[in-house]
Nucleic acid binder design. Structure first.
Lengths: 134, 134
DNA sequence: CCGTATCCACAAGGATACTG
DNA sequence: CAGTATCCTTGTGGATACGG
């Protein structure tokens, strides 16, 4: 008689795999990059240091909350630096760190791929959806 | 007297920007790549054609529903092909399409970056969190 | 074996209002 | 100007059970 049922073993394998996925560097990066506003912020900061209000204007679609949260996440991960100038009213600037800049080539790789292949994706979707409707 | 208040103009800009983001090829790709199980499936299929049950074993952490959904999404986008062998019981194989394979270098770029820089990210986080707690 | 359907929990994201 | 707090809606992902 086994000490673990097969159901228990499957459950353990499942939990172990999930933990591995969460620790996997690739998945952690994909997760961050997949955040809704991260790509846009990086692209904007690639152009140079930007004030909070500049970013808010450039990312007009993002809510205040999400813009701040995205910037905090990026700051925490070391991609972005935040500097406060205590004037009246205060001025806050964001800029890419070297680590953040090192990520740009990866982002560009995505952009390049997307530009070259997105119409194939669209074509594939149309074909797929056509089959589903018929 | 303006026909639109400034609040209305901001709202319009917000909606326009959001639509632009949704259409943006880069963001569409980042969105897909950011799906929880997409990277893992691509990595597994990179090794070669795989049966559904093989994938289920390799991605032990994913629920049945999410595995199937992920495969459907990838199939719809043209990254993955699905072929059914009507034996008893049925056998279903998944494989990367040329389009899917064209995406691998991008994924590898992410993996390479992650391998080289993830400890810097961890260090940044520790520093950030330390500052917050003190 | 492969997939679908149902129901459910939680996290992501957003609207609004308010503070230094 | 920059940020926080609150409340709310939606989407993503999971558990379970069932069907071809």
């Amino acid at each position: 008689m086994p000490t673990r049922t097969s159901a228990q073993r499957r459950e353990e394998a499942r939990d172990a795999h999930r933990e591995a996925v969460e620790l996997c560097p690739t998945n952690r990066v994909l997760d961050r990059l997949g955040d809704k506003w991260v790509g846009l912020v990086l692209v904007e900061l690639e152009k140079g240091r930007r004030r909070h209000s500049d970013l808010a204007r450039a990312l007009a679609g993002a809510s205040q909350k999400m813009l701040t949260q995205t910037l905090r996440d990026l700051e925490r991960d070391g991609f972005v630096s935040r500097s406060v100038t205590p004037s009246v009213p205060v001025r806050v600037d964001y800029a890419l760190t070297p680590l953040g800049e090192s990520l740009l080539p990866v982002l560009h790789a995505v952009t390049r791929w997307a530009g070259q292949h997105i119409d194939q994706v669209d074509a594939a979707r149309e074909t797929y959806d056509r089959g589903a409707t018929d």
